[in-house]
């Protein structure tokens, strides 16, 4: 808008406006953070006391100990890490084939992947359940891991990135007698680190935040992931908002940390599909 607006609006006014909108986006989170340190009777006091007089860290201790929060945390971490590794391996291999190799049926297969990525989850969730049930994997982490590893989006993303790397690099390696897997592992993958980081972060935060699939497949309390734990915390402790907020803060920490450190990969994952595609 530099070009669109020119100098029509003074800078100080722009800043004021930007701060106002930032507040609309951030205030609910600030309220959550502030509430998580309060006593029950302070939660709904008005006017809102944004900085509590005494910080009650014991809310966090209580959430951590009164429900199996550490277990939910571990389960979420386990499933998210395994799915992320699985996606990085299988999607980069498949993306490589689509981007840099020729084979009969390539276009048809790619259209199939692309179509799958447009189908809403709820359309295939019942037949998926049928398949997982036949495999005897209902109420296990395997159900989530298997359903989420083979992501069409991941293949699509890797293909977009990998087709941007010069073909001459592969040819030079082929002339030197390097086999295709060697080219993939030793030459192309090291160049595709930003793409791998993008896919990794995308997969991790997707699985970490996923709710509906865990809700369907995980019935044993010992297997539940964090979003399920948070939803049941919210249902059980309705009157103890400060505890629910402390649990929510804990659930946000990993994804927010990843975002703060790897912001640019987060953003490239979003724009890759629309602009480069």
């Amino acid at each position: 808008m530099g070009q669109l607006l020119g100098h029509a609006v003074p800078k100080s006014l722009s800043h004021l406006f930007m701060i106002l909108i930032s507040l609309i986006m951030i205030v609910p989170f600030l309220w959550m953070l502030s509430t998580s340190f309060k006593l029950q009777e302070e939660v709904f006091q008005y006017p809102i006391q944004w900085i509590p007089q005494v910080f009650h860290f014991e809310n966090y201790v209580e959430v951590w100990t009164s429900i199996p929060f550490p277990l939910y945390y571990f389960n979420s971490l386990k499933v998210s890490v395994l799915v992320t590794l699985g996606q990085l391996i299988t999607c980069s291999l498949a993306g490589y084939a689509f981007a840099r190799l020729d084979f009969p049926g390539k276009n048809r297969l790619f259209i199939m992947y692309f179509a799958a990525f447009m189908i809403p989850y709820q359309v295939i969730m019942i037949p998926q359940y049928f398949v997982i049930k036949k495999l005897g994997l209902v109420d296990s982490h395997w159900a989530l891991i298997l359903l989420e590893i083979f992501s069409p989006y991941g293949v699509f993303l890797m293909r977009q990135f990998l087709s941007g790397i010069s073909k001459e690099l592969s040819e030079a390696a082929r002339i030197d007698g390097c086999n295709e897997f060697g080219i993939f592992a030793r030459i192309i993958l090291p160049l595709a680190k930003p793409a791998l980081a993008t896919l990794g972060i995308f997969a991790f935060s997707w699985v970490w935040n996923d709710f509906q699939a865990p809700l369907i497949y995980l019935t044993s309390d010992s297997l539940k992931t964090l979003p399920l734990g948070l939803a049941s915390l919210n249902g059980e402790f309705t009157s103890q908002t400060q505890l629910v907020m402390a649990g929510t803060v804990l659930s946000l920490i990993p994804v927010v940390t990843v975002f703060l450190f790897f912001q640019r990969y987060f953003i490239s994952g979003i724009t890759a599909g629309s602009v480069k595609g």
Binding site: M25, P28, F29, S205, W208, N209, F211, P227, L230, A231, T248, S251, L252, V255, V256, F259, F266
Partner: peptide, 8 residues
Amino acid sequence: PHIASFIA
């Protein structure tokens, strides 16, 4: 807000 889960 996009980073936080829908549940949170």
